[in-house]
Design a protein around this nucleic acid. Sequence first.
DNA 1: ATGAAAGCGCTAACAT
DNA 2: ATGTTAGCGCTTTCAT
Lengths: 344, 344
Amino acid sequence: MVVRKKNNGTRSLVTAHDVAREAGVSQSAVSRAFTPGASVASGTRAKILAAAERLGYQPNLIARSLISGRSNIVGIGVGNLRNPFFAEALELFSHALERAGYRLLLFPIDLSTTLNAEIQEVLHYRLDALILLSATLTSALAAQCRRAQVPVILFNRRSDDPEVSSVVGNNIVGARTLAAFLHAGGHARIAIMGGIAGSSTSREREHGFLSYFEEHGLPKPIEERGDFQHDPATAATRRLLTRADRPDAIFCCNDHMAIAALNVARFEFGLEPGRDISIVGFDDVPIAAWPAFSLTTFAQPVATMVDRTIDIIRELRDEPERITHSVVEGTLVVRSSARSPRIG
Amino acid sequence: MVVRKKNNGTRSLVTAHDVAREAGVSQSAVSRAFTPGASVASGTRAKILAAAERLGYQPNLIARSLISGRSNIVGIGVGNLRNPFFAEALELFSHALERAGYRLLLFPIDLSTTLNAEIQEVLHYRLDALILLSATLTSALAAQCRRAQVPVILFNRRSDDPEVSSVVGNNIVGARTLAAFLHAGGHARIAIMGGIAGSSTSREREHGFLSYFEEHGLPKPIEERGDFQHDPATAATRRLLTRADRPDAIFCCNDHMAIAALNVARFEFGLEPGRDISIVGFDDVPIAAWPAFSLTTFAQPVATMVDRTIDIIRELRDEPERITHSVVEGTLVVRSSARSPRIG
DNA sequence: ATGAAAGCGCTAACAT
DNA sequence: ATGTTAGCGCTTTCAT
């Protein structure tokens, strides 16, 4: 029999106690039989496992984490899953965390609200770590996580608070590489479409890009903003392409916006990317490679970034206080959405 | 002071006991102060909340679920997040569950493996429900979930086991609608690209589509298979388009495959969709509307499907045994990737 | 309205 | 190697 009624009427599963009775051992023996590396005679263990099998027993993980103080759960806050960069990152995280023996508690980050309420809620599961994709963490909030003793790792973002770990791509180098690429391509009126103004990612990419032109004494690029999202990026592209001094090249601070820009340029303005206008992005999401877009971009190695994040979480087990800042290098991926420099 | 050392050296957070001492009440009073609708004098409650604030106390949700037997956590198994249909569903689920007061425990479904191991693990968190996107659930596994007393809801799939709740779109009607649309469009050699052979979704869409032609005494469509994934769909499209009797219309059993097919047709074979070849999909994912694809498709109302799923979970609170099968109707969305029937 | 006391299912000393 | 005992932090009777 698998289920029995408790006094209070709620239903109860088979407990270690039941198994102990069935196997004729103590309840702690049952616990040990399910603890890797505990000292149980192999005969006893077999007997216990058989009884457990018969009764359909499985240890209650909630009770286990209550005692151990560790939940084996990692929280992960995600903003916009329509951005394929985050969809891919989440996909990779789910597999990597699974392999590393962690469960994954997902919660949505509402970009408009303060993030405060969501995190508040989630902090009290004794998370082993909290990964934040696409979110900015204020110092106040970071302090709150520290107080709850939940280590935070920002993914693809940095915090104002230096005491928060982070894993980011090399935005400065990437943006400067793209700037040099567009400049060498002989573009005259260059524009930049920024992401979310407050994010370190956008700030770094914008700054890297603009600094290149400044240092070389070149005209300052036209600045627009697409908030890292599809619709605002579409609108921003329209504004750019209807200017009297229409730019001949646009650097979008992520691929998600670049693809929106590509669509507007080609289908609303009849401009063929790579010939009539150059558009480049940042990330190298899977669809950037599709022939329909063939986007020139700076690739962020998401898989490597995810692995680095997991490494950090593993290290946290022994050194909970440790702060790590990891910068992962990327590479320029030249496709056909932007005019390339002539060779020679 | 927020943190104190326990005897065993592990770190501990402020407990209800600490707050009780600080406020000069019993520990149970603290519990009540944090239980909505419990009988506490408002003065006492204020005193307790103030003490909690001072100490930085928040109830430990793990301990709470241990006692209540309910975790307020819903498990959600997802396969391929690169398929925008699932990315969108997950995005909607994360917000809807948040609003409904549930946490979301995400785990990856490896389509190649048996699903068994992943679910086994996750079942023991006393989940309030388990939502399975894009997975087939064998009867054996369904029985296991029942044993663990975790109600399962299949999303966009049905189970062989009638005792498992499900929320699906009307695949038969949708597929027949598309069949009629292609037929009325005057297509002569029609092909169908199936999804995962074992899935109810693919079976229903294939059956609905084929049954239309059979019932009308029309030639049987050419059959190919793209496994609901990008790369297999790309390969399947190549096989179709290199046939001697190249089809003039392809129904892909989801948009994810249809978009792959669109890319192959246009960029590898130079065929303009809607003119040289007709391609239709199923789902109406956001990017299907992009001018680069402009995919004619049968829309599944994901938001409605998600809401229905949440409704079912809510009902489960009172009637844990209840099984619900929900079928949500969709609509034909005509764009330009397929030749439309001439009017009149 | 409040406190005391008994668990929820498990782990981790401590004995034996 | 195994059993006994004492909690983990909370909710929930049961008294008062």
